[in-house]
């Protein structure tokens, strides 16, 4: 995935079954952000892989004061990349059926 300067990782083991999963996001490289960034730490949240949209979560983070509005796209993309990877891994580990 592209280096956005924003890191998103699983905050729990993925059992491959539940749709809602805990993710953790933090800024690795503040220079990649457009807006002024106040280092607040790692942000943990739950994300529903089936129902939710990464960009909506990014918007909620902006509204909660974690990021400047100009960085909503980069945060959304960072979450989307990680979510895509989780889904891709899940697809590859689906048990074979008759």
């Amino acid at each position: 995935a592209e280096d956005t300067g924003v890191r998103v990782e699983l905050a729990e083991d993925d059992d491959g079954k539940k749709s809602s999963i805990a993710l953790k996001l933090w800024v690795e490289d503040p220079k990649k952000l457009k807006g002024k960034y106040k280092d607040s730490g790692a942000i943990e949240f739950t994300f529903d892989l089936e129902k939710e949209v990464p960009e909506v979560v990014a918007q909620e983070m902006v509204e909660s004061g974690f990021f400047h509005e100009s960085d909503v796209k980069i945060v959304g993309k960072s979450i989307r990349d990680r979510v895509s990877l989780i889904k891709w891994k899940r697809e590859r580990t689906v048990p074979a059926r008759d």
């Binding site: 890191r7 690795e28 490289d29 730490g41």
Partner: peptide
């Protein structure tokens, strides 16, 4: 370590905790 919670008006809960130094990229 200290953690804080921020609840967005849409109901999502954000739990904020310090990033372990080992997880930060060396500049």
């Amino acid at each position: 370590s200290s953690t804080t919670q921020v609840v967005h008006s849409a109901g999502r809960r954000f739990i904020v905790s310090p990033v372990p130094e080992s997880r930060l990229r060396e500049q």
